[in-house]
Design a protein around this nucleic acid. Sequence first.
DNA 1: TGTACATCAGTGAACGCGCGTTCACTGATGTAC
DNA 2: TGTACATCAGTGAACGCGCGTTCACTGATGTAC
Lengths: 243, 243
Amino acid sequence: MTEAGKLANGARRRRRAPRGQGEKLREEILAAAERLLLETGDQGAVSIRAVADAVGVTPPSIYLHFADKTALMFAICERHFARLDLDLEKAAAGSEDPLESLRLRGRAYVQFGLDHPEEYRILFMTTPASTPEEWKDERMMQRPAFSHLVEAVQTAVDAGAIRAENPMLVSFGLWAAMHGLTSLFVAKPGLFLVNGEALIDHVLDVQIAGLGVTSGPPAGAAPHRSAPAAPRRPARRTALPGR
Amino acid sequence: MTEAGKLANGARRRRRAPRGQGEKLREEILAAAERLLLETGDQGAVSIRAVADAVGVTPPSIYLHFADKTALMFAICERHFARLDLDLEKAAAGSEDPLESLRLRGRAYVQFGLDHPEEYRILFMTTPASTPEEWKDERMMQRPAFSHLVEAVQTAVDAGAIRAENPMLVSFGLWAAMHGLTSLFVAKPGLFLVNGEALIDHVLDVQIAGLGVTSGPPAGAAPHRSAPAAPRRPARRTALPGR
DNA sequence: TGTACATCAGTGAACGCGCGTTCACTGATGTAC
DNA sequence: TGTACATCAGTGAACGCGCGTTCACTGATGTAC
């Protein structure tokens, strides 16, 4: 039995919310869980018990506001997903030029991952097995963060800044490239021997330059003196996603 | 108490190895753990107990051959890392042309991730906190799989096929791009609405084309009619890895 | 102004689970004499 | 050829742990009369 007014860990117990304001605890739980996620940098360390402790409340209280642990984890992500879109839109608005706008978007994306590594991991680096229905697979593509990217690509295509027969494909490609950088930063913080900023710039340079040249029929594709453009090889059959 | 000759799960008990061949169990453990990892697709499901059961042996026996669970997990990866390098080298040898060779390398990389998703996850998508010393950070860059990539890039530069002031930077960029694709395939198998093969080809096209154009001073960088090349913006200060 | 009562935010204790790991031990196999 | 013994691959039982979740309950707060 713990001393009255104290929790197991010795922290002060939270004051009970007045009558109509039970919803306040929900917010406190979310905030505490978010903080834990960032501090520990470990999704596994964010247990129902740990969150309850951090809020100053007992574990069962969590269930007054969240159906189960998964619901809690994804409530956190819901917020960050909305924020990601906001960040990207704000960054993209930084330039009128479609290409530069795409660059800004790309940089903001990586920055988001650096600012919220654990959330990024949950959103984009975890297996769908632990993902609730509404977060599955295709549903993610219909989120604003992605559809806004597709629109931005389309804008650049319309302006003639990049050539694209298929804006969706280009969007996926851009996303994959930035995600590659971001997820490596997140998973292996000490990995890159080169300057991180320079690497981001380089990847964006290559993307932008490459998109101006290719992604249509490979007409004037060969710049500099280079070997002849590689022939499209027949698709190797494998367990690839997509149609 | 379980029936003699049976295990808890009812599976046949493995025959004890003859005198000098205790090492055989080590191989069997590795094989079983690998199989479990692939079947369940869940690193968490591969427990010491589960592996022991699969081999037909009791949990303590595992400790005759591996110091702890981490040692076991990374012994599995050690094998796959070696195999990744092998796959890449074999694929790259498929063409004399430096650019095409790079493409083949890239495709083989993605293929490796598709063939061994859980191992890929452990190698490249997990946090360093759970990574033993010799797998940390920079050490990974000294592995053959990466140094071979750097050499391949250098070869392409020497042939004049791509322009690169810094082959290391280019290698990281290529790796990041392919890793982006691979890790999304691994983490979100149903995510991509577009054809997977086409996406891989597209990303490679963009990379190769972009590398021919940029990565030096952005001289003749603007193809087609496009907005003027974006000025190098000053580095935003943040918690970026690298120097 | 006082009191009985309904509401509801939260508690306390316990559940069953699977985990990694340790420790003293067994018993078949091979060897020395 | 027979027997005592050393070796060592593997066992059986238990340890303590933290986890997600459930259930009957409490007690401060506000309201009706």
